[in-house]
């Protein structure tokens, strides 16, 4: 067992974990943050995407012990004050989700994308989401959702 201390969605947590525990397992099992999903075992699908120290990462490919001392944001912490994040709002406005399973990871990846590139082209968005599988939407409305969010965020800034 190793002791880890980390901040998840602005709250500090401290736990003993087996070193082999994945961050995704830790978030889901220990903290009951089940919005982070596990869809594969090869770091391919992106359903488990969370933000770690301001970067979108695949929490199924990070050990909880590696996250010791980090700040994590999960989908549950993306909208801290009940106000939806622009990307969340965009997914709702543009029907960017169907079954919802990939959605949380997709939103976390898209939020990171817009953080780095507030005015992405369609190609930027498609390239930026290549680490996230969706089997429901054909990505069409996901791209539109991210475009909607980009526009909404830029309007907010201007």
């Amino acid at each position: 067992m190793s002791k880890i201390t980390l901040k998840v969605n602005q709250k500090s947590h401290s736990h003993d974990v087996e070193p082999r525990t994945l961050l995704a397992h830790y978030l889901r099992e220990q903290l009951s943050l089940t919005g982070t999903h596990i869809g594969c075992d090869t770091s391919s699908c992106g359903s488990c995407t969370v933000h770690m120290d301001g970067m979108a990462v695949k929490s199924c490919t990070i050990l909880a012990v590696q996250a010791d001392g980090s700040e994590i944001t999960t989908i549950e912490g993306l909208a801290p004050n009940g106000q939806l994040h622009a990307v969340q709002q965009g997914f709702k406005e543009c029907h960017g989700l169907q079954c919802g399973f990939c959605t949380t990871g997709m939103i976390m990846a898209a939020a990171d994308l817009l953080e780095r590139n507030p005015d992405p082209s369609e190609e930027d968005i498609r390239h930026g989401l290549e680490g996230n599988f969706c089997r429901c939407t054909g990505y069409h409305n996901i791209v539109r959702s991210v475009q909607w969010a980009a526009k909404s965020m830029s309007e907010l800034v201007n």
Partner: peptide
Amino acid sequence: QSVKRVEDKRFITGKGRYTDDIK
């Protein structure tokens, strides 16, 4: 009409409840 989906709220906030989420 293209009414926005009522189920989206829980999914986009990580509150969807899939079987593996249940303890």
